[in-house]
């Protein structure tokens, strides 16, 4: 029998992908080499925009902010996803509801979620500030959204609840580990902590590595909404992340050429980071 390849079924999707992603990306790449400002026709300026990016203090500050965000948020997000997966992988009363709750923050639209946290994080009357005040930490509570570091941490913590996909993937990874391995470990006298360290985490390792890779890519772009709606990049530029820098350069200052150059830089940085992580993971024999 002749095997029919129905690859044409993928064409509409691929067509859309080219039109909506590849073409704009190519345009952005082209604009990065011009002085386009949406008013005058663009002129070719060579590597001027990239030179400006490298020399721009705002760019380095945004890169540092993004890095800090990733360093705080990534471990939190991974740990939360794995913890939920390990706690909720076995069926039982209430487990279905608990899984839904763990997924819920990822379903809420980003803007609504950000506005909710704007209230949570309010330094005067927000519940977090009030709770901190109740245990004698008024200073910390009042610093929310006004002190650079507590704001950075707050935005990262906020992101640590939106782990729905990572949770589902970690859950699937845990359920792929045969129960007989746990039976064998129990008969062999392994305590729960030993089993977690020596069996569960190593066997979930490849998936965790994949989640980490994905989360870095995601984190380089994800904090745009909270930075725009909650902190407006502040206080003192502490939450001006790379996506917000691009947005402002383009749509507030109409420096499209420069914004495109930053975008291209983000793309290159992402590619480098992901490649380095991939190399590291390969060395660990994980993938």
């Amino acid at each position: 029998m002749r095997v029919r390849h129905e690859h044409w079924l993928a064409w509409p999707y691929l067509g859309g992908l080219v039109l909506l992603v590849v073409v704009p990306a190519a345009v952005a790449l082209a604009i990065a080499f011009t002085n386009f400002n949406a008013i005058r026709p663009p002129e070719f300026t060579g590597l001027d925009n990239f030179t400006r990016v490298v020399r721009d203090e705002a760019f380095w500050r945004a890169l540092a902010n993004t890095t800090i965000y990733i360093v705080i948020a990534l471990p939190l997000r991974l740990a939360a996803a794995v913890a939920f997966a390990l706690l909720l992988h076995r069926p039982g009363p209430g487990v279905g509801a608990a899984r839904a709750i763990a997924y819920l923050p990822s379903v809420v639209p980003d803007a609504a979620y950000a506005l909710l946290w704007l209230w949570f994080l309010n330094p005067i009357y927000g519940p977090i500030s009030l709770a901190l005040g109740a245990v004698g930490l008024e200073g910390l509570g009042n610093g929310l959204l006004t002190d650079p570091w507590s704001t950075r941490v707050a935005i990262a913590v906020m992101g640590a609840f939106q782990i729905g996909e990572a949770f589902v993937i970690a859950l699937a990874a845990r359920r792929l580990i045969p129960e007989s391995l746990y039976d064998a470990a129990r008969v062999d006298g392994a305590k729960p902590w030993f089993v977690l360290r020596r069996v569960t985490l190593p066997l979930m390792g490849p998936v965790l590595a994949l989640l980490a890779l994905r989360d870095v890519i995601f984190s380089l772009q994800a904090n745009f909404v909270p930075a725009l709606l909650i902190t407006d990049g502040g206080p003192r530029y502490a939450t001006t992340y790379l996506p917000l820098l691009v947005y402002r350069s383009a749509f507030r200052y109409f420096r499209f050429g420069y914004a495109s150059a930053v975008t291209v830089s983000i793309f290159l940085i992402t590619a480098i980071v992901v490649y380095l992580q991939y190399r590291l993971v390969k060395r660990w024999r994980l993938l």
Binding site: L181, R186, V187, D188, A190
Partner: peptide, 16 residues
């Protein structure tokens, strides 16, 4: 199980 002083060999070997 750990305190029963028995060792088990499983049908599907259960090797890590």
């Amino acid at each position: 199980p750990a305190e029963r002083n028995v060792a088990m060999v499983f049908q599907e070997f259960a090797l890590f």
